[in-house]
């Protein structure tokens, strides 16, 4: 085997030249382009990641705002419900108070009406009793309307306290009401009976009041002594009214 050393040297140089040429015009530009593409892809991925993170942050922000709005809405709803409950309670209380007041007013009105009716009934009863008594007494002799009541008048005056009787004795003339005009004898009998009870002479000023029906009524500044059918009927009516209550 023969080796051509010139060919060996030339081929060595040729391969070294080819290494330089391919390094300069093939490998270096291609690797630079690959690196540039990787850098571009990395930059785009980084931008996409940044955009994704920004979108996620925005989404989180919106979610937080929505959550805050929901919390605020819930708070407002809770406050509105509480306010409505308070208002409802207030209205119910006011309605109850109003109803209670109306009920009390109605009860008072009913009581007043019932009292008025009872008073009217009592008045009618009194009037009826007076009319009955007057009609009955009209059948009696006139003397019976006075004579039988003189002694009772004296007993009524005697039942008064001493001070009242003393003041009454000092108040002369005393007013004496009678259902008809008294005769002189009847007036004297009355003065005698009263003088005896009061312990001092009494002068009477007699007035006529047919409403008494029968009996006598003595009036003084410090006391009244009623001894008549009207006075008895009034007491009976008052007692009946008191018992009705």
């Amino acid at each position: 085997m023969h080796i051509d050393w010139w060919t060996l040297g030339l081929q060595t140089v040729n391969v070294l030249v080819l290494i330089f040429i391919l390094s300069r015009f093939f490998f270096r530009p291609l690797t630079a382009m690959i690196a540039a593409r990787r850098a571009a892809v990395t930059a785009e991925l980084e931008a996409a990641r940044a955009s994704k993170e920004a979108a996620a942050a925005e989404h989180q922000k919106i979610a937080d705002e929505a959550q805050a709005l929901a919390a605020r809405r819930a708070t407002l709803a809770h406050e509105a419900a509480a306010e409505a409950a308070r208002e409802k309670e207030s209205l119910i209380a006011a309605a109850h108070a109003e109803v209670e007041a109306m009920r009390a007013s109605a009860a008072a009105e009913i009581a007043r009406a019932r009292e008025a009716d009872r008073a009217a009934e009592a008045d009618r009863a009194s009037t009826l009793a007076v009319d009955i008594a007057a009609k009955l007494c009209a059948r009696l002799p006139d003397t019976a309307l006075v004579d039988g009541f003189i002694a009772g008048l004296g007993e009524g005056v005697a039942a008064l306290p001493d001070a009242t009787r003393a003041q009454m004795a000092a108040s002369s003339p005393l007013a004496l009401a009678a259902p008809r005009a008294l005769s002189a004898a009847e007036t004297a009998a009355c003065e005698a009976a009263l003088s005896r009870v009061l312990g001092a002479p009494v002068t009477l000023a007699v007035t006529v009041d047919p409403r008494l029906i029968a009996g006598l009524e003595l009036s003084a500044p410090h006391g009244i002594v009623r001894n008549s059918l009207k006075g008895d009927l009034d007491r009976i009516a008052k007692e009946l009214t008191r018992h009705d209550r």
């Binding site: 040729n14 030249v17 040429i21 391919l22 015009f25 093939f26 530009p29 291609l30 382009m33």
Partner: peptide, 18 residues
């Protein structure tokens, strides 16, 4: 071969793009 590879490399790398 060197000439072909050099020409190919030059022509190829003139039109490189991303």
């Amino acid at each position: 071969i060197i000439a072909v590879l050099a020409l190919f490399g030059i022509l190829l790398t003139r039109r490189l793009a991303l």
